[in-house]
C-alpha cells in the first residue's frame, strides 16, 4: 500500500522551443482522490498525456504502479480525456461493448453492465441510437460509462463535469464518489472549486508549468492564510502584522489572517483604528479564493470589481 499509484518526478515537457512543464513532481496514493488544478494552459492535460504514454516526456519519471504506463500491462485504467469522442456512426451499445471487450470483459457482461449504466444515467431508451444522434451531454454520459467500465483501479478524469447541467453534474459527482468508495484511486482535473472541496483529499496547484501548492486541502488553505476575515466597513484599513489586505473595495474588504493571530484581536485593532464595522465574518479561505489569489493577482485591478465577478472571470 505504500507505493504510490502515480509517481511523477522531475517531469519536464518541451514543445519545440517552449517549455510547458518544468520540474514537476508529485505522488498520488492508493485510494485517494487527487485534485489536479491549474489555470488554462498551465500544463495539466499535457502532464496526463505524458503519464499515459501519449506524449514522450522531455525529461523525468512518470510511473503508474511503479513503471511507465503501457496499455498491455493490463492495469485497469479509466481515462476520460479532455478531448471527448466516441465512434459517432455506431450505436451506443455497440461502442460500449467494444470498449468493454477491449478492457477484458466478455460480451455478455459488457452488455449487462452497459444496460444498467444507461438506465442509471437516464439513457435507457438510447442503447440502439447512433452516437451522433445524442446531445453532447448525453454523449459525455456514455463516455463516462465507457471510462468506468470494468471497475478501474485508477481513474483519470480530465474535466469530467464540463458541459453538464447542475442536475447531471451532481449525478456525475455521485458516480465518481461511488468509484472512490469502491476503492478506486481518482485523479481529477477540474475548474469547479466546490467539487474540489467536496471530493478531493489532496490537490496540486500548477502554475507556469510547475507546482505552486501541493498537499491536503487543509495544508493548502493554511499556506494561503488559512482563515480570512470579510468586513463591511467605512474608513481606511491600517496596515498590520496580524493580517494582510487581500481585497479592498469602497465598503468591503477581505483580510487574510497571519498564522497564530486571534480573530477577536483583529476586530479590536480595526475598531481602535477608528473604522466603522458593519459586519465582520471569519471563514476558512475557499479554494476559489486561493485560485484567484494564485492566478488572478496580476490580471485583476483589485479595487474595481466585486469579488464574485472577479471569481467568475478568473476561473
Amino acid at each position: 500500500m505504500d507505493e504510490p499509484v502515480v509517481h511523477i518526478s522531475g517531469f519536464r515537457m518541451d514543445f519545440a522551443d517552449t517549455t510547458v512543464v518544468r520540474d514537476l513532481s508529485f505522488d498520488v496514493r492508493a485510494g485517494e482522490t487527487f485534485g489536479f488544478l491549474g489555470s488554462n494552459g498551465s500544463g495539466k492535460t499535457t502532464t496526463i498525456r505524458a503519464l499515459l504514454g501519449l506524449y514522450e516526456p522531455t525529461a523525468g519519471v512518470l510511473h503508474i504502479n511503479g513503471r511507465p504506463f503501457k496499455p498491455e500491462h493490463g492495469s485497469r485504467l479509466g481515462y476520460l480525456p479532455e478531448e471527448r469522442g466516441l465512434y459517432k456512426k455506431e450505436k451506443v451499445m455497440d461502442v460500449m461493448t467494444y470498449f468493454g471487450r477491449l478492457k477484458g470483459m466478455d460480451r455478455h457482461s459488457a452488455r449487462q453492465w452497459s444496460l444498467a449504466y444507461l438506465n442509471r444515467v437516464d439513457l435507457a431508451g438510447k442503447a440502439a441510437t447512433q452516437v451522433d444522434k445524442l446531445s453532447s451531454g448525453e454523449q459525455q454520459k456514455v463516455q463516462l460509462g465507457v471510462t468506468i467500465m470494468n471497475r478501474p483501479e485508477l481513474l483519470i478524469l480530465d474535466e469530467p463535469t464540463k458541459g453538464f447541467d447542475p442536475v447531471n453534474r451532481r449525478l456525475l459527482m455521485d458516480i465518481i464518489g461511488e468509484q472512490k468508495s469502491d476503492g478506486a484511486t481518482v485523479v481529477m482535473v477540474t475548474h469547479q472549486m466546490e467539487e474540489v472541496e467536496r471530493l478531493c483529499d489532496r490537490i496540486i496547484l500548477l502554475k507556469d508549468g510547475t507546482s505552486e501548492a501541493y498537499g491536503t486541502i487543509d495544508e493548502v488553505q493554511n499556506k494561503y492564510g488559512g482563515r480570512i476575515v470579510r468586513i463591511r466597513h467605512a474608513g481606511p484599513i491600517p496596515p498590520s502584522p496580524h493580517y494582510e489586505v487581500t481585497l479592498e473595495e469602497t465598503n468591503y474588504a477581505e483580510l487574510s489572517i497571519t498564522d497564530g493571530t486571534d480573530e477577536a484581536a483583529i476586530l479590536r485593532e480595526l475598531m481602535d483604528a477608528g473604522l466603522v464595522i458593519r459586519s465582520f465574518t471569519t471563514t476558512k479561505i475557499s479554494m476559489e479564493d486561493i485560485f484567484i489569489r494564485v492566478y488572478g493577482d496580476h490580471t485583476q485591478p483589485p479595487s474595481s470589481v466585486p469579488a464574485r465577478a472577479a471569481a467568475a472571470r478568473g476561473a
Binding site: G53, P71, E72, Y79, G85, L86, L102, K103
Partner: peptide
C-alpha cells in the same frame, strides 16, 4: 476516424 471523432486517446490507453 479515430482522430476526427477524438477517440484516439481512449483507444491508445486501452490497447497497443
Amino acid at each position: 476516424e479515430e482522430k476526427e471523432n477524438r477517440v484516439t486517446e481512449m483507444i491508445l490507453t486501452t490497447l497497443k
